[in-house]
Each structure stands twice: as C-alpha cells, then as structure tokens.
Amino acid sequence: MTALLSVKNVEKRFGGFTALGGIDLEIQAGERVGLIGPNGSGKSTLVNCLSGTLRQDGGSVHLAGRRLDGLPAHARTRLGLARSFQLPRPFASLTVAENVRIPLLYTVNARPGGMLDGPGLTARCLELLDLVGLVRVAGKMPTDLTQIEMRKLELARALASEPTLLIADEAMAGLSHGEIDEILALLLRLNRQGITIILIEHIMRAVMQFSDRLVVLVAGRKIADGLPGEVVRNPEVERAYLGE
C-alpha cells in the first residue's frame, strides 16, 4: 500500500548546525502518529519542512504519491497537507468566522470544481466553527478569545482547507487538564472522520492516549518508531528523556 506521507532522508541545516540529519518516515492514511522529542530535537523543523514553511536541504517529501518538496506552503495546503502552529497565529484584524473563510477561499475554492458562493462560504464557516465548538464566538475578534478557543481556531482554520493530513503542532500547550481532554476528543473525532493526524506534543498523557504509533526525534535523528507502549520503554528513548 502506498503511504499517504512519505518522507525520505530529509535534511535541514542552519549554518553549521544540523537540525535534521536525514529523517525517514512513512505514514499510512488514517493513522494517528505522535511525534515527540526533547526541546531542540527538530520536531518543529520537520513540521516546517513538511509544510513548506522552511526549505529542506536534502531528501524528498511525497503526499499521496505527489512530490511536495520545492512547492511553496500554500500549494502543499491546497494538496491536502494542513498544519496548526505551535503558538496560535490568528489573523488579528479579522473575526473568527473570517479567519476560517480565508482557507476556504484559497484552498477549497481554488481546487477544480470548488466554488463556494457567499452563502455557501458562510454556511461552511459556521459548520467548521460548530465542529470545533466556536460557533458562538464566530463574530468575535481573535484577541477576545481564551487560550483554548485560540487553539480551536487554529484547528478550525487548518480543517477549512479539507486536509487529508493534519499536523497539529503542540495543539494542547498551555491548556488545563480538562481542556487537553477536549482537544484530544476533537482530534480523535477528526481522525474518525478520515483525517490522518500527526500530533507533536510534550504532554505525554495526551500523546499516549492519542497515538497509535509513536515517533521519537532526538538531535535531528529518528531514534524510535513503533507502538507507543514499546517506544516509551525503549532504552534509547529513556536515555534521551531522563539521561544516563
């Protein structure tokens, strides 16, 4: 079976520092993959290389058989790879509903046959906001949102592009116990609807609950990839997290 995402030998250097030293990764459609690693291990760099925010120095990235490397970020989003940001980055001058409208206008409507008109766009915006539980704040400005609402807006905006693969970069950072469960439930629901998800997270409880596969990066290298229960018992992973 062809993998949905195929990453081969992806490298990224910043001057003399190697942030990613040849990452290989294959993700099948429908998988829930947790990507973990200590700070500075290269998780966000990998996300940025996959999504096109950063240009990789070597290797290749394919999504559903289509080569992504070399394409700008917006083209990758249109092809079905969406991401949320580690720190919420809403469009501050636009309302919550308008924030979701942007990807609808530039991805769904940019695809062949996709032509949502005014009422269609509004209806789809509200549908997406309803999905993440933000419909009551649709007319508010992002600055008026709480932390969890900001996180949900990030996810709603990513979902608006109708992705096949969603990369959620620390979507639960800074949230309370209950709020983490809420986001977790949302991500699981999205996965059940057919969206493949890579979750980058430091909160181990959430990662273990969410993932059916765990990938560990340390110092720009993949040191483990497998079932979560096995990976966390891997001596190399223990050493990376707890030291010798």
Binding site: H74, R83, F85, R89, S93, I102, P103, Y106, R157
Partner: peptide
C-alpha cells in the same frame, strides 16, 4: 498583513 506564514499555511499565495 496579519501573519504571512499563517496566510501561506491557509493556502494564500502570498
């Protein structure tokens, strides 16, 4: 204007 990286990630050909 609000966030160029987020705009790209939302499919906007900046």
């Amino acid at each position: 204007r609000d966030d160029e990286a987020a705009a790209e990630a939302s499919g906007v050909p900046t």
